[in-house]
Design a protein around this nucleic acid. Structure first.
Lengths: 328, 328
DNA sequence: CTGTTAGCGCTTTCAG
DNA sequence: CTGAAAGCGCTAACAG
């Protein structure tokens, strides 16, 4: 029973009124008698009627109350905590954040971004790993509010909240050098914008660190990749005594490699994580403050939503990550 | 320019054809001449036309290709890894997973669940913390595929993938007892179904553990709550030597309390986490295998989507969590 | 307080 | 190969 969608007309018929009265009741609008209202409410309940958000959205030309957020993956702690923080702020502005993950696939990222906007979401938070965003020009022209997170918009003008990845990497190497390490390694990756910025930062800093030697190993962004990179560093002669890992997963893998090697190696992790202070020895970290990023991002997004048509100047916020020196 | 939504009619006009031909081209359907097709494609490009997913969905009565997933929060590692695993599987079935988090608020959870279904998603994965799901009856009657994760459907029949939380807690206490601990504590919470099941399991097991003494402390599910609970246990006389933490956040907080107290305490964590094996001493864990859960959940969901109208029997899959004994 | 009309953007159906 | 008509469910705008 009730296999077919129950429409507003079914309710109207059951309550012996017009669809308009039902609509008014549904939306809590005045202009319906107490009796009638009651009959309608009963009919709604009876039939299990749910207004089709699709029809409403279609009618209004947009889906009110929702913004989209696209992240590369749901599981890295940074993305998930950022997502949670942003979600909270958007929620307290009375909106719903709808998320999807691109699975680190640019094609999927694009179709999600377009899809969300086509579904009538008026705002989009885009944690992009794509290197061209020109395809979003039409939706920007149409006044959609798009905020880039973590990596800058390419070939398109839009507000963004960025992190100074290079500076973070420089700080991290500085700490290792200050702590007396002379053989330093960087376990990194070129797979994403963030990762390669960090590696680039490390490369830039190398010159200033003499007499310390810095070697860079790149690998895929997985714990396994980190483990292999760590093993290869530690098994070779002249193994490093200090390592910067440019990503959480690489940190975990490298830490396992260090444990298995039995050596004492100091690690700095780009991206802090819950248990960094609990490890022995504690792991120092470059922390991208999720609060700060979430705060800026949600503010920019909400501003963009309000802005309506006037195209405000495009804001870029760059956050300098903090070095959390632990141990020693 | 292009402030207003570009519609299929604008494209049709620009290309000097009817809307139907544009529609055919858009959907890759045959029956359009090469020349015409080309003109239309150019006009689409020119105008930056994007078909309104809202209009299409409305027309078809549903939003094809998407399923919804609701999680309590995006940041706990278990939810985020589960979300990522499920997303992957749904994606390889050619569908998109759209996520939202309830912020641990039952009201929000309901409106999201209804909202997703009202938006025309045909499937919903619900990681619920609500204790009544009768409100979903109408959508189930209408043939929506809803799969419950982690906690059972209440007052409604729907497939679910559950974890035997009690058994996990029993296993964990068993490990501590086997390892010779005679003063054991449980840091838990009654705030959610999962948490209270675990505490209940621990209470059940207490009798069988004599001569060990087991005390239970409940607190809020945050690292701070775990820290406070840990401190209160460790500062009191007869402090426990083994602690079961029934939730990741509680584990982190308790571990900090242990570190600060300078004591040696063995911890078992309900829910494994990346760095559990890297801590000193290593932290044993009760692991809810995200792969297994994701596998079952996505399968049930996809089955439900295919099922159409025939209401198959309602499947409940219960997964027995694994004890990962570490150290010692 | 209540109802009628019209149309949002798209696609199905049926004619040419 | 192409187009005209009709309608999906809902709500503004306008009667009554």
């Amino acid at each position: 029973m009730a296999r077919d969608r129950v429409t507003i007309n079914d309710v109207a018929r059951a309550a012996n009124v017009s669809a308009m009265s039902v609509s008014r009741v549904l939306n809590g609008r005045p202009g319906v008698g107490k009796q009638t209202r009651k009959r309608i409410e009963e009919a709604v309940e009876e039939l299990g009627f749910r207004p089709s958000a699709l029809a409403v959205g279609f009618r209004q030309g947009r889906l009110l109350g929702s913004v989209g957020m696209i992240i590369p993956r749901a599981d890295p702690p940074l993305f998930s905590s950022l997502a949670a923080e942003i979600d909270e702020r958007i929620a307290s502005a009375g909106l719903t954040t709808v998320m999807a993950s691109s699975g680190r696939n640019a094609e999927r990222e694009r179709s999600l971004a377009r899809g969300f906007l086509a579904m009538g979401f008026e705002g989009l938070l885009l944690f992009s790993e794509d290197d061209d965003h020109a395809y979003l020009q039409p939706e920007l022209d149409r006044g959609k509010s798009i905020v880039f997170l973590g990596s800058p918009p390419r070939n398109v003008r839009a507000p963004s909240v960025l992190v100074d990845n290079r500076a973070g990497a420089v700080d991290a190497l500085g700490l290792l050098a200050r702590r007396g390490h002379r053989r330093i390694a960087v376990v990194g990756s070129e797979a994403t914008y963030q990762a390669s910025e960090r590696v680039a930062g490390a490369r830039e800093a190398m010159g200033d660190l003499a007499p310390a030697e810095v070697q860079v190993v790149t690998t895929e962004i997985t714990t396994e990749g980190g483990y292999r990179a760590g093993r290869s560093l530690l098994d070779a002669p002249g193994a490093p005594t200090g390592i910067l890992c440019t990503n959480y997963l690489l940190t975990v893998g490298t830490l396992r490699a260090i444990r298995d090697s039995g050596r004492h190696v100091e690690v700095v992790s780009f991206d802090d994580f819950d248990t960094a202070d609990l490890l022995t020895p504690p792991v120092s970290a470059i922390s991208q403050d999720p609060h700060a990023i979430a705060e800026q991002a949600s503010q920019l997004l909400l501003q963009g939503l309000d802005a309506g048509d006037r195209d405000a100047q495009v804001t870029t916020v760059t956050i300098h990550p903090r070095l959390l020196a632990r141990g020693a």
